[in-house]
Simulated scan of single mutants.
Amino acid sequence: MQIRDAEDRDLEGITAIYNDAVAHTTAIWNETTVGIDNRRAWLADRQAAGYPVLVAISAQGEVLGYASFGDWRAWEGYRHTVEHSVYVQGDQRGAGIGKALMTALIDRARAAGKHVMVAGIEAGNIGSIRLHERLGFEQAGLLRHVGTKFGRWLDLAFLQLTLDERSPADRSTGA
């Protein structure tokens, strides 16, 4: 398996993984699947903002999973904090792909001078919560009944990872 930056040739696989999560899981709180043009625009937006989109690629060139991060909130005071997402093909979960993607994504966030990485995870997704905890994320809060999917209310668990110990005074204003 190889972890690398996503390219246009990966969009079909990224779209399939995204749509599978929409249709079958509570990992994405949308109920409408998207077309490849939607994911193309999403990838272009991430790249234009300077944020990574990483893919895990099998030896045969198949997209097994993807991960990215972006702004936590739009206001300037949050510029050192990012929120991420990571998705793995349904039949590949538990095989270490999510961990490999997350490890590379955390390295990218540190290299970009970010201070905190936030995870918003459906509270019943114990596998994802445990993966994040093994990577050093700590529970930061729980919002009850803030979403709905499949005819039920969903709780949102927040976890966070402090990426460095520098103070805001130690950072350049552009990071």
Rank of each mutant, 00 (worst) to 15 (best):
Ser172Phe: 03
Leu101Phe: 12
Ser172Glu: 10
Ile97Gly: 03
Gly174Asn: 05
Gln92His: 12
Gly90Thr: 09
Gly147Ala: 11
Ala104Pro: 03
Val55Phe: 06
Glu138Gln: 15
Pro52Arg: 07
Gly61His: 09
Ile126Arg: 14
Leu101Gln: 06
Ile57Thr: 04
Ala100Tyr: 04
Arg9Glu: 14
Trp29Pro: 09
Leu154Gly: 11
Asp170Val: 08
Leu154Ala: 08
Leu135Arg: 11
Ile106Met: 04
Lys99Trp: 06
Val63Tyr: 03
Ala104Arg: 14
Ser58Val: 01
Arg166Ala: 15
Asp107Phe: 00
Ser167Cys: 09
Ala74Ser: 12
Ala59Ser: 11
Gln89Val: 10
Arg166Gly: 13
Met117Val: 04
Leu64Gln: 15
Thr81Leu: 03
Val53Phe: 05
Gly50Asp: 06
Leu101Glu: 13
Asp20Ala: 12
His80Gln: 13
Ala44Gly: 11
Ala100Ile: 06
Ile14Arg: 10
Ala95Glu: 12
Gly120Pro: 00
Thr173Lys: 10
Tyr51Val: 02
Ser58Tyr: 02
Ala112Lys: 13
Gly35Glu: 07
Glu12His: 14
Glu165Phe: 00
Gly174Cys: 01
Ala27Met: 14
Gln2His: 06
His132Cys: 10
Ile121Leu: 05
Leu11Gly: 02
Thr32Glu: 15
Asp107Tyr: 01
Arg144Glu: 14
Gly124His: 04
Gln139Pro: 13
Gly65Gln: 08
Ala44Asn: 14
Ala16Trp: 03
Lys99Pro: 03
Gly98Ile: 02
Asp164Trp: 02
Thr15Asp: 03
Gly35Gln: 10
Tyr78Gln: 02
Leu142Asn: 11
Thr32Leu: 09
Ala48Ser: 12
Leu154Met: 12
Phe69Ala: 01
Val22Glu: 09
Asp71Ile: 07
Gly113Met: 11
Phe150Thr: 05
Val82Phe: 05
Ala157Val: 02
Ile17Ser: 02
Ala104Ile: 04
Asn125Arg: 10
Ala59Val: 12
Tyr51Phe: 15
Leu156Ile: 10
His80Cys: 11
Gly174Lys: 07
Trp29Val: 07
Ile106Asn: 10
Gly90Val: 02
Tyr18Pro: 03
Thr173Leu: 15
Ala44Ile: 04
Leu64Ile: 03
Ile28Gln: 06
Ser58Ala: 15
Gln139Val: 08
Tyr78Asn: 06
His132Glu: 11
Ile129His: 05
Leu105Met: 08
Thr148Tyr: 09
Arg110Phe: 10
Asp107Met: 03
Arg39His: 00
Ser58Asp: 06
Ala175His: 01
Ala6Ser: 11
Arg110Trp: 08
Arg108Leu: 04
Asn19Ser: 05
His145Leu: 10
Thr173Arg: 13
Val116Glu: 05
Met102Leu: 15
Ser85Asn: 11
Ala74Lys: 08
Arg166Asn: 08
Arg46Cys: 12
Lys99Phe: 00
Ala67Gly: 09
Gly61Gln: 06
Gly96Tyr: 12
Asp155Glu: 00
Asp8Trp: 02
Asp71Asn: 09
Lys149Asn: 07
Val88Phe: 01
Gln92Pro: 01
Gly96Leu: 07
Thr26Met: 06
Lys99Tyr: 13
Ala111Gln: 15
Gly136Glu: 12
Glu76Ser: 14
Ala59Thr: 10
